Simulated assay, not measured.
Amino acid sequence: MPRFISPLALALIGTILFGDGAHIHAKAWLAQVLLERAFDRSVASGEAVKPWSWADTWPIARIEVRRIGASAIVLAGTSGQALAFGPGHIDQTVEAGERGIAVYAAHRDTHFRFLRDVAIGDVIEITRADGKHFRYRADASSVVRFDASGIDPATPNYELVLTTCWPFDAVTSGPERYILHATLIGTGS
């Protein structure tokens, strides 16, 4: 009897662990579907629309890198709640398309997983919730300590930074961050 229970117990434990790992990716996918709907309603109405009634954040922009087929909805703020569902806009930075640096941050294993595939020269498109559209060109990347980003919020230029934890394939958090820098190259559709 114990020989029969052991394989069943191992199979059950394996199923639970697999389900737990798949849960985070399923939640990220479902959240992006709900965020897409809220973002589209925000653009159409001109007002911030929460993706679900109890949300403490709302969509403010869409990031697209068409060359690699990547897209994500950016949320207001970078609280732990917001980052669980999508990239967040760091409050102390300007909105995309404004003079200065707009900074978006997200987790490396979900919403900014695509950053590993973005190449220097790629076009990053940002559509804000007010319907305005901006195109940036990725022009530099670096790995820095979390407390030494080198980002100058007082820059006179129009810039975008996408940031996430480094290295991309780590299983635990660490002090390093990957920074992808881009410069505005155009506006409109």
Rank of each mutant, 00 (worst) to 15 (best):
L8M: 12
K27P: 07
G88I: 05
A102S: 13
P59S: 14
G100N: 05
F4T: 09
V103I: 15
T127R: 01
G19C: 12
T110F: 02
G19F: 10
G100A: 06
V65P: 01
T15G: 15
S71F: 10
W29V: 08
I101H: 11
E95G: 04
D91Y: 10
Y178H: 09
R99M: 14
H23D: 11
P167I: 07
A38I: 08
Q81G: 03
R66G: 00
P2G: 07
T183C: 02
A148S: 14
T78N: 15
H25M: 09
H89Y: 03
S141G: 09
A76K: 12
I120R: 06
R108V: 02
V49N: 08
A11D: 00
D122V: 05
F134H: 13
N157K: 14
S141D: 14
A55S: 08
L30P: 05
D122K: 03
A61T: 08
F134N: 07
S42Q: 04
P153M: 06
G77F: 01
E176A: 11
V103L: 08
N157I: 00
H89M: 02
R108D: 12
S45P: 03
A129K: 11
W58K: 13
P153H: 09
R66C: 00
A106G: 14
A22Y: 10
H23F: 15
G121V: 06
V123I: 09
T163W: 03
T155W: 11
D147T: 04
L180W: 01
P153T: 01
R135M: 11
S42F: 02
I90Q: 11
R137Q: 15
I90M: 13
L162H: 05
V94P: 02
I179Y: 12
A26S: 06
V103E: 13
I90A: 13
V123E: 03
G69H: 01
G86Y: 09
Q92C: 02
D109N: 15
E159M: 12
V143P: 11
A70E: 00
R62G: 01
L17F: 12
R41I: 11
V103G: 14
P51S: 04
T163E: 11
P175L: 07
F4S: 01
P167T: 07
R41A: 15
S42G: 07
L35D: 12
D122M: 04
S42T: 10
T163L: 14
R62C: 03
G80A: 12
E98W: 06
Y104S: 04
G46H: 02
